[in-house]
Design a protein around this nucleic acid. Sequence first.
DNA 1: CGGTATCCACCAAGATACTG
DNA 2: CAGTATCTTGGTGGATACCG
Lengths: 129, 129
Amino acid sequence: MESIDAVGPAPELVSDVFARACTSRAAFEDVTSRWSSLVLLALAEGPHRFGELRRRVEGVSERMLAQSLRGLERDGLVSRADAGTIPPRVDYELTGLGARVAEGLRGLADVLESAVPEIDRARLDYDAR
Amino acid sequence: MESIDAVGPAPELVSDVFARACTSRAAFEDVTSRWSSLVLLALAEGPHRFGELRRRVEGVSERMLAQSLRGLERDGLVSRADAGTIPPRVDYELTGLGARVAEGLRGLADVLESAVPEIDRARLDYDAR
DNA sequence: CGGTATCCACCAAGATACTG
DNA sequence: CAGTATCTTGGTGGATACCG
């Protein structure tokens, strides 16, 4: 008889963003959460210090930035380097995984940025109904 | 003298997701909002009826699904086709722009789904500190 | 079936103040 | 500079009930 689930490389199909209990769903929600996505986008341009990120991501509060950074660090997307000096200096940068995620986010942002006129028109049409 | 801003295609650089007031930032937040992203992902697999979407996107309530669909329709990412029959039948599908956005989202989901072991390990490490 | 209306709980998130 | 602590509030979103 033929062997069932015999050889072949790793399944890969065990993860599913649609599944509530899957880690990928949680990570997906982290990554797409309001401030984390913009933080990843900012870090895609290179390492940033806390204050630099705060200025780059318009509108984020210190609290939310710190919280977002903790979450991204926990998921292994961002690494934190504390110089241990006074005054303090902490640099944040993307990990390899973080860079791959940020790349996807960048693609998304590019599509949206170039579609602004189209979106504005669609909204006008919709709101006029 | 050389002409400044003479020829070349459209600037394209006027839009910026980092800018609070930019349409692209708003659209980016819509697209990455909790349920809308999963709805787009589901619709990337083909047109769905309301109930099908509700089952496909685990955990979404009727209220949130309806609300997400309105938002996506308003941004011109999803089109709604009401058959006008009784019992009602309404089909949702991606527009051209919606398809491009969903493609980006799919890439993101793929990265995350394949990185589940890596993320799980990172979380374990982080929580153990 | 495909929604809308209403009520309510929680927490995301802003403001402010303070510290190593 | 890089955060944490505390307080407060508005909005997100769940549950339920109802309608065409």
